[in-house]
Design a protein around this nucleic acid. Structure first.
Lengths: 354, 354
DNA sequence: GATCAGATAGTAACCGCTTGCTATGGTCGA
DNA sequence: TCGACCATAGCAAGCGGTTACTATCTGATC
């Protein structure tokens, strides 16, 4: 194997150039030990004369902790994850941390693998974003990862998902899925809607189950009888929203409003309505969840639940490196309704069809 | 099953548990040296009994190259970057690489810093995404980084931006900004448009200048006289599109079509048109560039230039680790027109106003 | 003038893994 | 039976920093 002709500049090179020991150079670079002004000057001069950049791996090895945090999302392009990732990345940058990003594509097995991969990189914290599976084996395995991570000096940070079992060393920052769903459903109810179709994400995904729970609670509180047939569980995406509403419309939709469990689903619902010649909100009211940009791009603009996604990400990043006792390790940020133009009084005619 | 000793489990622990030397464990884990089947079995057993995960930093240090690549984008949530990032992340995952992501927020200074940060992490490759500044000092400094990176055994990969000067060791994968702009402008011309407003990104940003160049070439080829007043240079975002068209409409827009230099700008243009009560494409035709999802969410659907963003990202990831001679180190992927509903024949009345 | 504390700088032992080189045991052909 | 060869496994020297501990040089104190 041919070895690289000129390797990078090392601490030793800098030390030699500055006429000091590597310890001294290390110290001026870390800035955590007194170094005489003149010595420091010589060192910094040498550093940028040689264009030296510290080897982060060597430092991580010596300090036995990397200046890196990891974030696991389902999909990088989905705005829900994108905004959280942006918050994480920005706060991480402010804190001098690099940010490893990985996508699970919704696979829980892969998520577990990715956590291990991040552990391998000795990330100071691993952020798991979005709903989690409500699955026994999964929870056990993740709890085990959380413990291992803690043993290694890191933290498992749950972002927008409920904690694991008690006693499992995790930190978390989330928002109120149940409450937001309760509020937006109440909004629909206040407009007079009584039959509301719910179109939402994967079964057993916490985000979905909590939103559905809030929805249900609002209904019950208003004395509306629960109807299982109005609940459509599938995926958190435009595809599913489109397919579901299309199918519903084909067989006659006995509802006056749709609660799309997130804005992406609402996009699909809008498309299906458009194709079927159904007007929103005239014939059908629609609400979403998350308040990502598409909500304002849709026509009519979508009424939805605003979640401070970027803020969520920033908090998560902080939790990755916070000293114990410094921060609230299980925070919740608020959500609020954003009322736009997609809700009106229910129509009074019979079932809606394409 | 995996019991966790309180520090991290190390190679030595595994070696002890399996009754072999660390060298042997390292070898079975790397799989690049013959190890007897039974020994291998003992080792793998020990590995997962202890829940061992390799310390990636130590490995990177010993191998003097990390299994990590870096990607620098302007903004994580912008779909243009998001799709490229997705391609990078996915291909990286397939190649067993972790992916460090950082956002420059459009600052060239910050971009340079981030490259150094990524160098520090000994990333095998550093991917720079999106248009680059046409600035002498910047180019020089970046060229210097490229050389340093090459010396350290890595690669600077330019994704969607032109190469630096000759002789600078970079790899690149891009698409045809000029050609796509030429094509979409020709499309407008074919519909009879002669006065087309261009609304585009930051001055001196390569993406913008090439798109404008293609636009201009199409105009010239059709014998349309060039009018500087139709060119509006600012930012690549909805804000700018909105502000620009609003201003234009206020003073009377003497054009029948708008070439939004990317889809985000088109979003702003649509909004401004809507607010002004101007119909697209009846009163004004609009085209975009990139073909991100919003193009199909807009009404009317936006005609635009499709860029294989995810593919671009995948190629970039490959270039980060490709052995010399293996791959074309300066590839170009094709673009194509996606014609939808935002273009019609020009209106024949005078200037358009709010 | 000797002593001592404070400020700096140097020494060297790691951090956990890789890998060139060496050692060992068994198999074979002569 | 002996040396040549294989196939395996171990040894130990790094990789490039960090940092506990030690050494040196000052000026201040008595």
């Amino acid at each position: 194997m041919p070895s690289s002709p000129s390797a990078g500049v090392t601490l030793a090179d800098v030390a030699a150039a500055a006429g000091v020991s590597t310890a001294t150079v290390s110290r001026v670079l870390s800035g955590n030990y007194p170094v005489a002004v003149r010595t420091r000057a010589r060192v910094t001069a040498a550093v940028d004369e040689l264009g030296y950049v510290m080897n982060a791996n060597a430092r991580a090895l010596a300090r036995s902790r990397a200046s890196t945090i990891g974030i696991v999302v389902e999909d990088v392009v989905e705005p829900f994850f994108g905004y959280i990732a942006r918050g994480v990345e920005r706060r991480a940058a402010e804190l001098g941390l690099a940010c490893l990003i990985m996508a699970s594509r919704g696979s829980k097995e892969r998520e577990l693998e990715l956590v291990d991969l991040l552990r391998a990189h000795r990330a100071g914290g691993v952020i798991l974003v979005g709903g989690s599976a409500d699955d026994r084996g999964y929870r056990t395995k993740m709890a085990q990862r959380a413990r291992a991570l803690a043993d290694e000096g890191g933290h498992l940070v749950l972002c927008g998902r409920p904690p694991l079992s008690d006693g499992v060393p995790t930190r978390s920052v989330s928002y109120d899925n149940e409450g937001g769903a309760f509020a937006i459903t109440s909004h629909l109810l206040a407009h007079g809607h009584r039959r509301i179709a719910y179109v939402g994400g994967p079964d057993r995904l916490s985000t979905h189950t909590f939103r559905l729970a809030g929805h249900r609670r609002a209904l019950e509180q208003h004395g509306v009888v629960w109807d299982d047939d109005l609940v459509h569980v599938g995926q958190f995406g435009a595809e599913f929203g489109h397919a579901t509403l299309t199918a519903l419309l084909r067989e006659g939709l006995d509802a006056t409003a749709v609660f799309a469990a997130n804005d992406a689903v609402a996009v699909g619902v809008y498309e299906a309505a458009e194709e079927a010649g159904i007007s929103i909100p005239g014939d059908l009211s629609v609400v979403g969840y998350d308040d990502v940009p598409v909500a304002t791009q849709l026509r009519p603009r979508l009424s939805t639940v605003s979640v401070p996604l970027e803020e969520l990400g920033r908090r998560a990043a902080e939790l990755c490196v916070a000293e114990p006792g410094t921060l609230d390790t299980d925070a919740t940020v608020g959500t609020h309704l954003v009322l736009r133009d997609s809700v009106a009084a229910p129509r009074t005619t019979g079932p809606l069809r394409a």
